[in-house]
């Protein structure tokens, strides 16, 4: 992985001849797909912006090895809406409707890597909503947690925590 990044960095130096501040920024996904975005979009991504700042704007192609070409368009779409001041409840509802649990988690990781505070806050709430009132088994699967309690230990805990189970899905009704 490290080699791949450094080879990309070498090829970047060619584009250093264009330091104009209005130049588009090229974001390169982990699977080597280039996404051209306006500099204002890059500003939303703190990690990208600090990279640009560190090189005085000379480097406009940014490798993002941790983010796939599947996730990056979603991130860009959210940033575009954010800049336009058009993040509404309706937009957010539509935005997450398209995403399955796994994609939400991947975008959450991407938002964390790029340091986009609004997207992080939003996705954190989305995940919280998706696991709220879900059965213990469901949440274990969601986070990939291995249950290491003995049946006796778990039964005892369930009894102690009985009050927290009000309104929670039963264990067998959580497929999907």
């Amino acid at each position: 992985m490290a080699e791949e990044v450094s080879s990309q960095m070498n090829s970047l130096s060619i584009s250093e001849t264009n330091p104009s501040s209005s130049a588009t920024i090229s974001l390169v996904s982990g699977d080597d797909i280039v996404f051209k975005v306006e500099p204002t979009i890059a500003k939303e991504m703190e990690t990208v912006q600090s990279f640009i700042d560190e090189t005085d704007g000379k480097i406009t192609t940014i490798p993002l090895p941790n983010i796939s070409s599947h996730d990056l368009p979603y991130v860009i779409e959210y940033c575009e809406k954010s800049i336009a001041g058009k993040i509404t409840k309706e937009f957010e509802a539509e935005f997450v409707k398209k995403l399955n649990n796994e994609e939400v988690k991947e975008l959450f990781l991407a938002a964390n890597y790029l340091n986009i505070k609004k997207l992080l806050d939003f996705l954190s709430q989305v995940i919280a909503d998706r696991i709220a009132n879900k059965s213990v088994e469901y949440v274990r699967r969601y986070f990939g947690i291995e249950n290491d309690f003995t049946p006796e230990e778990e039964a005892k805990l369930r009894e102690e925590l009985a009050w927290t189970f009000t309104g929670v899905d039963p264990d067998d009704e959580d497929e999907n």
């Binding site: 709220a132 213990v136 949440v139 291995e146 249950n147 290491d148 805990l157 927290t164």
Partner: peptide, 11 residues
């Protein structure tokens, strides 16, 4: 209530 319930997930 939800947060406390996560203590049942694993040790």
């Amino acid at each position: 209530m939800e947060v406390v319930r996560t203590s049942i997930l694993s040790s």
